[in-house]
Design a protein around this nucleic acid. Structure first.
Lengths: 177, 177
DNA sequence: TTCGGGATGCGGCATTCTGTCTCACGCGCG
DNA sequence: CGCGCGTGAGACAGAATGCCGCATCCCGAA
């Protein structure tokens, strides 16, 4: 039962990329890596890819922007969006742009592989009230996204001090990555 | 410039349904309502619907389950999922099941209408800058209501200490009322 | 080119808020 | 009655916040 799927991993964190690539290779997959949008697109031009793992937090450009470009480069591509700081806003946006799934780090390799499977029986996923912290984080993400990552503008819009927002972002990025 | 779109609103909260229906009617839309899955499906059988607003928190059954049934009843239906407690998991699941968008209550009517627009037509709609404090308060109110005013239960659901919730409620009731 | 405005990251410090523990009280129930 | 549960509130250490400053960058106007 060999697996012929060819994966493309896109993430600006090289260490993470290598670890993940090794794990997938051990599962019998062919794996390519890219750390930048241009690199990813050039891979797609020369190779046929089955499954693509896209990190949203690419240095500089957002992976959200890259997603449609990937799909137009190869229409039958399955793209799974992976992110360190997940939010509903980016999740919906990613799905609307054609991702097949959206997961938050840290994920296990099996979760990742499973994430590409079509709608399996995922029953009883009923919404439960999120904690205020999750709520706050979601909201911050949304507004931050609206302001294109501008921390100062986001802090003003959120009516909170820039220093406070800074510290919140710091803490979350530590815990999530 | 009349608008011929026919909407179907599905929510088990009748009051919410009526308010929303009235607002949409004022915008020139034709609006039907349903409070149960069977009711919704029967509407779809007799009428052609353009836009469907589906609440995830239907009494008993999850709206997530109803979503594919709606789409199989009418294939060209645009379904926007609306939920009180948003989460990444349900958002992704809803999108995978064919929703065109996923929004969290409370939403304005303009947000709702805009949520049906395709991505290209969604430039920068930023009607209000919601502050993080307002967000927190809204959320606390909603969960408090859900727990019928039980402070202890609400604190547990919100993953915060009862004492802290107590103090927040106190402060708000003083300054606001 | 220089200059000014704005964004960012970070240190420090006084003030505020939160987590935790504690007690007292009320209420329904077997 | 005792028991469980919810509520309100005092006290105090530790964490978070508001607010100052300073040092970079980057970028568009002069």
């Amino acid at each position: 039962m060999t697996n012929e799927s060819h994966w493309l991993l896109i993430d600006d964190d090289d260490a993470f990329l290598q670890v993940l690539a090794r794990s997938l290779a051990r599962h019998g997959y062919r794996v390519s890596c890219a750390t930048t949008p241009v690199e990813a697109l050039s891979v797609l031009e020369s190779t046929h890819i089955d499954r693509c793992v896209l990190d949203l937090n690419l240095a500089g450009e957002s992976g959200l922007q890259l997603l449609p470009e990937l799909l137009s480069a190869q229409r039958d591509l399955d793209v799974l969006v992976l992110t360190g700081y997940g939010s509903i806003a980016t999740a919906v946006e990613a799905m609307r742009r054609g991702a097949v799934n959206y997961l938050c780090k840290p994920v296990s390799v099996s979760q990742l592989i499973n994430g590409f499977e079509p709608l399996e029986a995922t029953p009883e996923l009923r919404p439960e009230p999120p904690s205020v912290e999750e709520m706050e984080w979601e909201h911050i993400q949304r507004v931050l996204n609206e302001h294109e990552g501008n921390v100062s503008a986001t802090a003003r819009a959120l009516n909170m001090h820039r220093r406070t927002l800074q510290r919140k972002l710091q803490k979350h990025s530590r815990w999530r990555s």
